[in-house]
Computed example of a mutant assay.
Amino acid sequence: MALQPSLRPLIIAGRHDAPHTIDVFLDYVCPFSAKISLAINSVLLPLFSPGGKYDGKVKVIFRNQVQPWHASSTLVHEAGLAVARVAPDGFWKFSLALFKHQGDYFDIPSSSLTPVQIREKLAGLVGDTLGADKKAAFLDLLTLKGSPNGGVAVTDDLKYTIKFSRQNGIHVSPTVLFDGLIVNEISSSWGEKEWTEFLANKVTV
């Protein structure tokens, strides 16, 4: 699947030129997305890393799946995209930390916070996860500038991810594609056994 060059940090496992692609559409405030992220980290990453069984054969792309019925979803995905810029190598580490703390950004806990306060809270998570030296650049990317309705520095990246989901008919998270086709049987409950069997049947190179 296509990926604009500025978003290459969203390739969270495998080599960029791997022939097979797993696209995983995830929402940071979706509990099922958090669940599958653990399997991605513990099962898939070792298989696709140097020395792994599928090294050079499969890559995994994190696809931001904004779900606007959760008011904070846009803000947390902006945060992920900002991290992809200020600390590209730390994107997945930050994403895992955000999934771990996703409850802080659920509807009720975030309902009394302004967008600025939510971004400041996310900056604290950036500092705790990637280092305090990353916070200023992170917040700068998420500061409203320019016209009254012009968004932030990563708004265009956010638009790209939303348009990509829409044109591919993605509605729920998590949704997983293998080589561009939706694989409905993949579940957030999958563990090592299910993923191992799936890859054995799908990887052909």
Rank of each mutant, 00 (worst) to 15 (best):
L125V: 09
D157L: 15
P148T: 11
K59I: 01
W195H: 14
V29S: 07
F164H: 14
K53A: 13
G51M: 12
S111R: 05
Y54G: 14
L47V: 06
D157S: 14
R119I: 06
F99T: 10
D23W: 01
G52Y: 14
P46A: 11
D179V: 01
P88Q: 06
G52P: 12
I118D: 08
L177Q: 00
S73V: 12
A13W: 06
S6G: 03
K35E: 12
D128N: 12
N201T: 15
A34G: 15
S95A: 15
F198P: 10
K159E: 14
F25E: 00
F48P: 02
W195V: 05
Q67D: 04
P174I: 00
G56S: 11
L47K: 14
R63W: 00
W69I: 08
K134N: 04
N168L: 15
I11Q: 01
I12M: 00
A136C: 06
S110N: 08
W190D: 07
I170V: 15
E185C: 09
A71E: 09
R8P: 02
L26T: 10
P50F: 06
V172D: 11
I186F: 04
R63E: 00
F62Q: 00
I61K: 02
H16E: 14
F178A: 11
L3F: 00
Y160I: 02
D156L: 07
P46F: 13
N168T: 11
K93E: 08
D140G: 07
L199V: 04
S72C: 06
K135I: 14
G90K: 06
T114L: 11
W69D: 04
L139H: 05
I11P: 01
N184A: 15
G103L: 09
G52L: 04
T196R: 04
R63Y: 01
S72L: 05
G127W: 10
D140A: 14
K53W: 02
F106P: 03
L141E: 00
D156V: 09
V205R: 13
T155Y: 14
T161E: 13
L158K: 03
E197C: 11
Q67R: 11
T143I: 08
L96W: 06
L113A: 11
S147E: 13
A87I: 12
A71Y: 07
E120C: 06
I40K: 03
G180H: 13
E194L: 07
V58F: 11
R119S: 03
P88Y: 04
L47P: 07
G51Y: 13
K93D: 08
A87G: 11
P88A: 03
F32Y: 15
P50V: 03
T74W: 08
G14L: 07
G90P: 10
D89S: 12
Y160S: 15
L177S: 00
L199R: 10
Q117L: 08
L47W: 09
M1N: 06
G127Y: 06
P88S: 05
V66F: 00
H16W: 05
P31A: 05
Y160M: 14
I108S: 09
G124L: 08
V60W: 01
Q102H: 13
I22D: 01
L158T: 01
A2Q: 07
K53M: 10
S187Y: 04
L7Q: 02
P5T: 00
A18W: 03
S110V: 12
K93T: 07
S73Q: 10
F164A: 02
S49K: 13
F25A: 01
K59R: 15
D104C: 07
